[in-house]
Simulated scan of single mutants.
Amino acid sequence: MKVSIIGTTGYGGAELLRILKQHPEFDIQSIHSTKEDIPIWNEYPHLYEIIENKLQKIDADQIADQSDIVFLATPSGISGKLASEFAGKNIKVIDLSGDLRIPAEKYREWYKQEPAQPGLVEEAVYGLSEWNHEKIKDANLVANPGCYPTASLLGLLPVVKAGIINPSSIVIDAKSGVSGAGRSLTRNTSFSEANENFRVYKVNEHQHTPEIEQQLLNWNNDIKPITFTTHLLPITRGIMTTSYVQLETEQSTRQLLELYKEMYSGHPFIRIRPENNFPSVKEVAGSNYCDIGLHADPRTGRLTIVAVIDNLMKGAAGQAVQNANIMYGMKENIGLDFVPLYP
């Protein structure tokens, strides 16, 4: 299948290139940006003599004529407009931005931008690969989940779906590496501000909050608003979410681990850690894995859920390719069997 990527100069687009270059079924047909007619290695010198494609202008008609699928790796506020240009054309679309994940009124409130066309948002299938496989398989338009929601939801959904937690008790403490903020320089992500520092940001205001709540409500109508706090880590890649929930009845860690293993059986990228073993972000770097560790505290009746992902892989480009694999009826892990980088 022939693939086009719009937004290849950002980190998500660069990660798509890394994955798709060695994918056995997808061939990179074209790459697109507002910059034109320069080789991609001018932006990313590590691609010199590996990927020679030049950046091309964005022409939806031409892209739809020459490719089977297009990845939109552009910022929120732009992808929604691009998705509308591909509507009705014979091409599948995967959007890595937040434009198609939540309804218009929520988008306007949390993203502070004008939303995409309501019809597009309604058509888009939410691409949380492990939990929405059947709908993704039949989709022509997929809204790829955000990085924080991916880690948060993969950790929480088994107990939410099982209905064994207090629906008003969810607290998510989330941390991300600086690449999650994108390639554009800001004060907080500059070296002198981020290095040897640990910063909380967007307290109770992060735009991924309604996305997480929306999906939790899909599995349990009793879920109440969550507390979601985000922090910036002085690392390049990685997300860790530590979620706290109150159990409705006494459950042992061993019982809950069995629940998670059963629910994620057959899903190649979810690794449930053994009892008293908890993942760290470095242990999934450069891979599409999500590692989950659990501990049920008999003293407080609370369950602690630790989930880690690489924000550019499972949190963005890796999950996007995983969804493309599903859309074309391939095994989910084709082209994504990267062993994590270590150290």
Rank of each mutant, 00 (worst) to 15 (best):
I94R: 04
I305F: 06
K202D: 11
D59P: 09
F269R: 03
D337L: 12
L216A: 01
H23Q: 04
G318C: 11
Q207F: 12
W131L: 10
A143W: 08
I58M: 00
E196T: 15
G12D: 11
D173V: 06
T9Y: 00
L185G: 08
S30M: 09
T189S: 05
F191A: 14
Q214G: 03
K175G: 00
P118Q: 08
L157E: 01
L157N: 04
R254T: 15
G155A: 11
A87Q: 13
Y342A: 15
L256Q: 01
P103F: 10
V203K: 13
E122Y: 06
N188T: 15
K112M: 10
L120Y: 00
L153G: 04
R183L: 10
K224V: 08
L303Y: 09
V159M: 03
I51M: 10
H206R: 02
T189P: 09
V70I: 12
A64Q: 08
R299E: 15
N53P: 12
T249W: 09
T229I: 15
V200H: 11
A317W: 00
S97C: 05
N144C: 00
I69G: 02
K137Y: 12
W41H: 05
H206W: 10
K81E: 06
A320K: 04
L96N: 01
V306I: 12
H206A: 08
N204S: 13
Q29F: 13
Q29L: 12
S76Q: 02
A14D: 08
Q113S: 10
L303R: 05
I28H: 03
I58Y: 00
L185D: 06
V306C: 10
I38T: 12
F86P: 04
D138C: 14
D37A: 15
T209F: 04
A316Y: 02
P45Y: 05
I326E: 05
F198D: 13
N132K: 04
E205H: 09
Q246R: 13
L157T: 09
P24V: 10
E123A: 03
H46A: 14
K81H: 14
E123T: 02
I170C: 00
I28L: 05
T304Q: 12
S265M: 13
Q56Y: 11
H133T: 15
N132C: 00
N333L: 13
I223P: 07
D68R: 07
L153Y: 05
I63F: 06
G77T: 01
E205T: 03
K35R: 14
Q22V: 15
K137V: 10
A64R: 11
G335Y: 01
T74F: 06
I78S: 02
